[in-house]
Simulated assay, not measured.
Amino acid sequence: MTAKFLFGLAAAAAATILPTLAVAQNAPNASASAEALAQELDGDSITVGIGAGYLPDYEGSDDYRWTPVPGVIGSVSGINFQVLGNRASADLIPNTSGSSWDLQAGPLGVINFTRTNRASINDPRVRALGERDTAIELGGFVGIGKTGVITSPYDRLSVSVSYRHDVSKVHRSGIWQPTINYFTPLSTKSAVGLFGSVERVETRYLRTYYDISPAQSAVSGLPVYRNKGGWNSWTAGAIGTYSLTGNLLKGFKIVGGGTYRRLINDVADSPLVKVAGSRNQWLGVVGLAYTF
Rank of each mutant, 00 (worst) to 15 (best):
A215P: 03
S160Y: 00
R279W: 03
L263N: 08
L55C: 02
L21D: 12
W101C: 01
P271Q: 07
G98P: 06
L37C: 03
L108H: 06
V286W: 05
I150C: 08
Y58F: 13
Y205K: 04
D166Y: 09
P214Y: 01
I136R: 10
N26P: 01
V69F: 13
H165Q: 07
L263Q: 10
E59Y: 13
A218K: 06
V126R: 08
E40V: 07
T2V: 02
T184Q: 12
Y54Q: 07
I121G: 09
G277F: 02
Y154R: 03
R279Q: 14
I121E: 09
A268T: 04
R204L: 04
A3G: 15
A215N: 11
H165C: 01
I239P: 01
S213A: 09
Q281A: 05
D42P: 05
Y225S: 05
G287M: 05
G8P: 02
E202P: 03
S97L: 05
A289R: 06
V149W: 03
R226E: 11
S270A: 14
A10S: 12
Y242P: 07
G251D: 07
A34R: 14
L194Q: 07
P107G: 08
P124W: 02
V48I: 15
W282C: 01
S100A: 14
S120Q: 15
G78K: 03
P56N: 05
G221F: 03
S158H: 00
I144H: 00
S120M: 11
I93G: 00
F141W: 00
S75N: 15
N26D: 14
L37P: 07
V198Y: 09
R132P: 04
V69C: 08
R118P: 14
H165R: 11
S120E: 14
A52Y: 01
L92D: 03
V167I: 12
S89T: 01
L21A: 14
V192W: 14
S270R: 06
A32E: 12
I93L: 10
T245H: 08
S168F: 04
I111F: 06
L9V: 15
S45L: 15
V219M: 04
P68V: 04
S168M: 04
I46W: 09
L9E: 11
K146R: 15
T184Y: 05
L249V: 04
V286S: 09
R207H: 08
I121F: 10
N181D: 11
V201L: 10
G230T: 08
D57I: 10
A10F: 00
G148F: 09
V142D: 00
